[in-house]
Amino acid sequence: MRRTIVLWIVIGSLLAGWGVTPAAVKAEPPALSTYAEAASLIDVTSGRILYSKQGDKPMKIASLTKVMTAIVAIENGNLSDMVKIGQSAFGKEGSSLYLKLGEEMSLHHLLYGLMLRSGNDAAVAIAEHIGGSIEGFAFLMNQKAQELGMDNTHFMNPHGLDMEGHYSSANDMAKLTAYALKNSVFQEIVKTKTKRVPRPEEKWDAVWNNKNRMLNIYPGADGVKTGYTKQAKRTLISSATRDGQQLAAVTLNDPNDWLDHSNMLDYGFRHYPLQPLVKQGDKAGDGLVLGASFNYPMTDEEAARIAMEPELLQEGTASYRLGERGILKLLMDGQMIGTVPIYAEGSPQLATSVRSAFRFTEDGPASGNGGFIYRLKQVWSALFTLSH
């Protein structure tokens, strides 16, 4: 409790010295509008939803379903497996790779066909190979949805063709996308514009061009998936990376999705840059260091409301003997947005801590709207100077 009080006293006095007052802080970002029935914008690193319009409304999602199909297949299958095209996959209605009955193709290549060309035949073949049946694979999909906290989602098939009981929401699909984009295999597939795949039974290789126009029209675009059915209408997930920050946008039933996604991504990058709060290796007191970096997307106004609260372990505990010393809580308006481990200097656990791609220069953050955050970093150092 004493440390918390000291922290707030230090922040108040130092900010006063820096001249940071409400009048000097930017206002909240302007309202964002879209043509979509439902929409969501998420920061991939933190998982923070930056914008939501009817984000929790269960809706038909069409081929956005294949994001879950792909990640379940990647996590449960062997990419080098040869998958045989069965009767259920052969000639499946809707978008297709035109795979032949009995043809064999590697799971890895099928995943490219699934995500670039939205092949429903590939979806069925993958599902039967991984789950043993459509029903078995749908069970794995729903299990993963539950694990990720997708509370407004239920899958009935791997392709997204309209079916009773098959639905998700914009926010749930944003959560799923942020999770999937942390998988290197998934990320490599969805950012690919063109893929050439050998088909020994044909006279020529298959050449698949990605249907996602965002890859060509939006700078930094690197995914993810298009979708359409008569009932779902146009659905789209896009992602883009700028200055080390990756965002993902989701729209459901949106007649003007390419424009909306460009505007949503611009909005996120402009108003919610990923800002560094602490860096792995920062001093956290005598003989104490932080075990990980922590970045968070926020407006300049929100950055002025960040607080840091250390919670240290008592000596003599098993964790203490292993080198752990506690956690640093990071809060915005009193609500915790994350934690960072605190270790004793030289602890072997430091070697396994997660490193952030964000780096500090000698004069402050290397990029982003980091002026205030750099000052907050100085506050953090001052806090432990005063409290030890």
Rank of each mutant, 00 (worst) to 15 (best):
W204P: 06
W204A: 15
D205S: 13
D205C: 14
A206M: 13
V207F: 11
V207I: 15
V207W: 13
W208L: 14
W208H: 15
N209M: 10
N209S: 12
N210S: 04
N210I: 05
K211L: 13
K211G: 15
K211Q: 12
K211I: 12
M214E: 09
L215N: 02
N216C: 15
N216L: 14
I217V: 09
I217C: 11
Y218A: 07
Y218H: 07
Y218M: 06
P219R: 09
P219F: 11
G220E: 07
G220V: 00
A221N: 07
A221C: 06
D222M: 05
D222R: 02
D222T: 05
D222A: 03
G223L: 04
V224S: 02
T226S: 01
T226R: 01
G227K: 05
Y228G: 08
T229I: 00
T229A: 00
T229W: 02
K230M: 13
K230G: 04
Q231N: 12
Q231D: 09
Q231C: 04
Q231Y: 14
K233R: 15
R234P: 09
R234V: 06
R234E: 15
R234N: 14
T235K: 06
T235A: 10
L236T: 10
L236Q: 06
I237W: 00
S238Q: 08
S238R: 02
S238T: 13
S239R: 07
T241E: 14
R242N: 14
R242F: 04
D243Y: 10
D243A: 12
G244F: 04
Q246D: 09
L247Y: 00
A248E: 07
A248G: 02
A249K: 03
V250M: 00
V250T: 04
V250L: 00
V250G: 00
T251G: 05
T251W: 01
L252Y: 03
L252K: 03
N253E: 10
N253M: 10
N253G: 06
D254L: 01
D254Q: 01
P255I: 08
P255L: 06
N256W: 05
N256T: 05
N256C: 03
D257E: 12
D257W: 03
D257L: 08
W258M: 06
L259K: 11
L259C: 08
H261G: 01
H261I: 09
S262F: 15
S262I: 10
N263H: 12
N263P: 05
M264I: 08
M264C: 07
L265M: 08
L265H: 02
D266N: 13
Y267P: 07
Y267A: 01
Y267N: 07
G268S: 05
F269T: 01
F269P: 04
R270K: 15
R270V: 04
H271N: 10
H271K: 05
Y272I: 00
P273V: 00
P273N: 06
L274K: 07
Q275H: 14
P276Y: 11
P276S: 09
L277S: 03
L277M: 13
L277E: 05
V278Y: 09
K279N: 10
K279T: 15
K279W: 14
Q280R: 15
Q280E: 13
D282R: 07
D282S: 09
D282L: 12
D282W: 10
K283N: 12
K283V: 14
A284C: 07
G285M: 03
G285S: 02
G285D: 04
G285K: 02
D286I: 08
D286F: 15
D286M: 14
D286V: 15
